[in-house]
């Protein structure tokens, strides 16, 4: 019995090595496909996602609610709050959507990401692209699930004292994009990211020197050096809200600023409300 089990685990190990070697060989031979955005599903699924998933499951112990609101197929725009000094929330949101709803999330990222070496192309390989009406429309037109953080740097870089307070939602681009593409908006609230790098101060001269939007001072960084780069193990919860259908508006609505502002405000209120509810549900930040 024992010997039998040993043999089987041996067999499993061998198969793992063989499939690992086959993967490596495909990578070295360049035998994989990327789409026009540079998305490399094989690399994402085999390398990037597992790393993110380890953080997601074991470090942040993420719980997800409202997955039934993520459509099984077809385009939709997921609009979430942005926080955490370092935008890990985007990566965690894509793990939640991938593992929970079996869909890939195509995020729209800041232009800074695409100017940075390594980060830019890793982001493209993970399926994300530059935030802009053209790319968003193109992805939604292909029936992809698109994720966006309309607060941008104002959200991700806000001081710890302002945690869970939504910032301005851009200039209404999300409403225009959803109206033009004829897709619903799915509000999402991410709780937990605010505590990973509590930004208690901003060292502006250095930020300007490095061309960054801010240079964060957290309780551990730069005090503890490299160790300070480790995110604090906060408890995460992600809540997806009911899809907000925009079907009642006609195609011209995207060119009517008043309609666009109203929709944007409505989405923002929804996300803020969900944020408060989920925050209550979570309770203490690190337990």
């Amino acid at each position: 019995m024992n010997a039998h089990r040993e043999e089987r685990s041996d067999d499993g190990l061998e198969r793992k090595i063989a499939s690992g070697l086959a993967f490596l060989r495909r990578r070295i031979a360049g035998e994989y496909e990327v789409d026009e955005f540079g998305f490399d599903p094989e690399f994402n699924g085999t390398v990037l996602l597992p790393v993110a998933r380890a953080l997601y499951e074991h470090w942040f112990r993420t719980e997800v609610f409202g997955l039934e609101h993520v459509p099984e197929k077809g385009g939709a725009l997921i609009v979430a709050n942005h926080s955490g000094t370092v935008p890990l929330d985007g990566i965690m949101l894509s793990v939640a959507v991938h593992d929970g709803a079996d869909r890939r999330l195509r995020l729209l990222g800041a232009d800074l990401v695409y100017q940075m070496p390594l980060l830019g192309h890793l982001s493209r390989k993970a399926g994300h692209t530059l935030a802009g009406p053209a790319d968003a429309a193109r992805l939604l037109g292909k029936g992809e699930l698109v994720g966006v953080f309309p607060e941008g740097f104002k959200g991700v870089g806000k001081p710890f004292a302002d945690r869970y307070k939504l910032q301005r939602f851009g200039r209404g681009g999300i409403a225009q994009t959803a109206l033009r593409a004829g897709v619903p908006i799915i509000p999402a609230a991410i709780v937990g990211a605010e505590e990973i790098y509590p930004k208690i101060a901003d060292f502006r001269p250095l930020a300007r020197l490095l061309g960054l939007p801010y240079f964060p001072i957290t309780p551990t960084f730069p005090l503890l050096g490299v160790a300070g780069l480790l995110p604090l193990p906060s408890k995460w919860m992600i809540q997806f809200g009911e899809p907000m259908s925009l079907a009642e508006y006609d195609a011209d609505a995207a060119d009517d600023p008043m309609t666009v502002f109203n929709i944007t405000d409505h989405v923002r209120e929804n996300v803020q409300q969900m944020l408060y509810d989920t925050l209550l549900r979570r309770g203490p930040a690190f337990l």
Partner: peptide, 12 residues
């Protein structure tokens, strides 16, 4: 440029 749309159409 890093600020390019992912795909250029003739109108861009």
């Amino acid at each position: 440029s890093p600020m390019d749309p992912a795909v250029f159409t003739e109108r861009d």
